[in-house]
């Protein structure tokens, strides 16, 4: 579904990604993790063409993410950012159905779709008429997820979707996301700095370090067979933080 070949990206003099190769199969869920500044968000932004690589190529479903191919590809890829990135001037429903309405949905169809999605992410229908600032953090992330799913995309890119939420809401949403991913069977790439969250939601973990892939494997492999000293330190730091024995179990 996604194929990145020798992708490099710098901002000014700072190299963020250096020669990354990554291939993501349709229907899989991948957790992209690593310490802050390792390039994981940049990698995600390259995958839906918000950024262009300095060198190397990014392909979605066999087509390079370039020029005229961008708009149709983006409609097949849902994207959710940390703070939700909701449009403050539109109600929850209008946020969710903006693209659909621009593509010719009737008002009835838009409302119907918004309700379906609300059911899917367990959002009270009464909240659909509210503006983003009238919603709680967790409700906003649910709306952002609805917006990403509105046009039934084949892939979902999630950039720290739960990063700004308090622990209770976060745990609740983690449960719901896992259930949702299993039910929808979409290709999902999830950026997080939390190994436990990644392990809980994804079968495959890609750990980035200083712009390169440090290890690519199952959560279990990361814990039991760390590919480098860094991976071992990263894993053990996370385990200490959570006070649990095996993040993967």
């Amino acid at each position: 579904m996604f194929r990145l070949s020798s992708v490099s990206k710098s901002f000014g003099n700072a190299s963020v990604l250096a020669g990354v190769d990554l291939s993501i199969e349709p229907g899989t869920t991948v957790g992209l993790i690593g310490p802050s500044g390792c390039g994981k968000s940049t990698l995600l932004r390259l995958m839906n063409g918000l950024l262009e690589p300095d060198s190397g190529a990014v392909e979605f479903d066999g087509t390079p993410m370039l020029g005229d191919a961008l708009t149709p590809a983006r409609r097949r890829i849902g994207y959710v950012v940390q703070e939700g990135g909701l449009f403050a001037h539109l109600t929850a429903e209008k946020n969710v159905t903006l693209l659909g309405r621009r593509l010719g949905w009737s008002a009835t169809r838009a409302t119907q779709r918004a309700r379906e999605l609300a059911d899917l992410v367990r959002l009270d229908h009464a909240l659909l008429v509210r503006y983003p600032h009238e919603l709680s953090g967790g409700q906003r992330q649910r709306v952002a997820l609805m917006r990403a799913l509105a046009n039934d995309p084949e892939a979902l890119l999630l950039d720290e979707p739960l990063g700004a939420l308090d622990p209770m809401v976060r745990a609740e949403l983690q449960d719901e996301l896992r259930e949702l991913f299993e039910r929808l069977r979409k290709t999902v790439v999830l950026v997080t700095h939390d190994l436990a969250e990644a392990a809980f939601l994804a079968r495959r973990i890609v750990l980035l370090h200083d712009g390169s892939i440090a290890q690519d494997g199952t959560p279990d492999e990361l814990v039991r067979e760390p590919a480098s000293d860094f991976v071992q330190r990263f894993v053990s730091a996370q385990r200490k933080l959570h006070g649990i024995e095996g993040a993967a179990s």
């Binding site: 708009t71 449009f87 903006l98 890119l157």
Partner: peptide, 9 residues
Amino acid sequence: DSARSLGLP
């Protein structure tokens, strides 16, 4: 970013 990623006309 959210707006761009939607693929609006």
